[in-house]
Design a protein around this nucleic acid. Structure first.
Lengths: 224, 224
DNA sequence: AACAATTATTACAAATCTGTAACATAAGGG
DNA sequence: CCCTTATGTTACAGATTTGTAATAATTGTT
């Protein structure tokens, strides 16, 4: 399960939170200060950092930047001072959420899961469409686990559908999204051909498309 | 600037928040209930929905699912009841943040910007590297605003660097990330050539790379 | 059923991508 | 400074991508 680092110097809080979060299925490590935190992070495998901003050495904010820049992990601030200044500055420094103490453990878990989902850590950033999986972190699409080796434009076209799932996309809008944005002028049929190429790679039965559907006279739509 | 829909039936709150958010550079529209909200959303162009969960018709939670499924927009709940139940359920239904009333306007703005950043709406999901911009939503990279037309593999290689910024990446790791994952066996020099191709497109002066740096004997690193 | 309009399919050259090899240059150790 | 090794550069052939055109199939409407 997701591995979390808790940066907190209050032994009681550490022990309580650790126990609670472990009970919720997280793998929890702790560190009592910034320096220790960075050392523990180097052991690798962490998905998120929970950080008390009332830390003695430094002010927590600088530690946040350090975590972000060296490890690229999401950070949630826990703080006693629920004042406006801290909130704004915390977010400005790249905190992904901010929870004033006292907080309820269940809310903490909700927010942890939420941040993991939003940041695409903990197994996110992947869109599933039937047998097809699109991983925008890797920039690749897979079908039944096999790399589809989409061409650059096929991939871009697929992203347009994915980012507008459930919405009808007109031919014009699709053409604009891929070709016109670059100031190209292409044959109208180019889109039709690309739709076919995508379907041939994505669909189980390209003759009966389930992923990219035609809405005659209007355009195409990707079902959710 | 970012276009936001405020769903709230209290006229006073609507007028106060609208004014404040407009002052912060947001384009704010409002709706007093779920049905109206969905109609307004159909006018298009929205980036985020702020939703009061103490709405009369329905309970706000179902409206959240509707917004998510039909428009794919991030939703922030505003609520009078800061109770645990609402928080958990709100996140479960896909809310991207949850702000109990009363809240400070500045905190609201922070959280809006944060959600826009995390969800990649509002011009987010874009990574800037000097003159180069990578938009993983569009699946494209730009230099001074011009599409670089990276090939599929060039783009994938770039993503590996971006997702590991500030970390040293060995040749082996890079080769694995792009080629070995697909079970390919390629010449070791293939990577060197791709590094050059990327640099030729990304760097201002490919002879003096600033974005992808060589760490002799160890690998390559993308600076932050 | 006949028709027009839309969408799908196929095939094809030109452009680009991809991997390799051969050669060039740069960096570090003795 | 010389030598070795790592990295950079260039050029090339084969594969793939890309856009177009010609043709076929489908759909909805008379």
């Amino acid at each position: 399960m997701d591995k979390i680092l808790l940066v907190e110097d209050d032994r009681t809080i550490v022990s309580n939170l650790t126990e609670y979060l472990k009970g919720q299925g997280f793998d929890v490590k702790s560190a009592s200060g910034q320096t220790e935190a960075l050392n523990v992070l180097r052991e690798g495998g962490f998905e998120l950092v929970l950080m008390d901003v009332s830390l003695e050495e430094g002010n927590g904010f600088s530690a946040c930047s350090a975590v972000k820049s060296e490890f690229g992990l999401p950070v949630i601030f826990l703080t006693a001072s629920g004042d406006e200044y801290s909130t704004v500055t915390g977010f400005d420094l790249g905190a992904d959420d901010y929870i004033p103490k006292p907080f309820r453990p269940r809310e903490l878990v909700s927010r942890i899961k939420n941040v993991l989902r939003l940041t695409g850590k903990g197994g996110g950033a992947v869109v599933r469409l039937g047998n097809v999986t699109v991983d925008t972190v890797k920039g690749a699409a897979y079908r039944n686990g096999n790399d589809l080796f989409l061409s650059a434009l096929e991939y871009r076209l697929l992203l347009v559908f994915i980012n507008n799932r459930g919405q009808l996309l007109t031919r014009e809008r699709l053409l604009d999204a891929i070709w016109d944005a670059a100031g190209e002028f292409v044959n109208d049929n180019t889109l039709t051909v690309y739709i076919k190429r995508l379907r041939d790679k994505l669909e189980d039965d390209p003759q009966k498309p389930e992923i990219i559907k035609t809405v005659r006279g209007l355009g195409y739509i990707m079902e959710r």
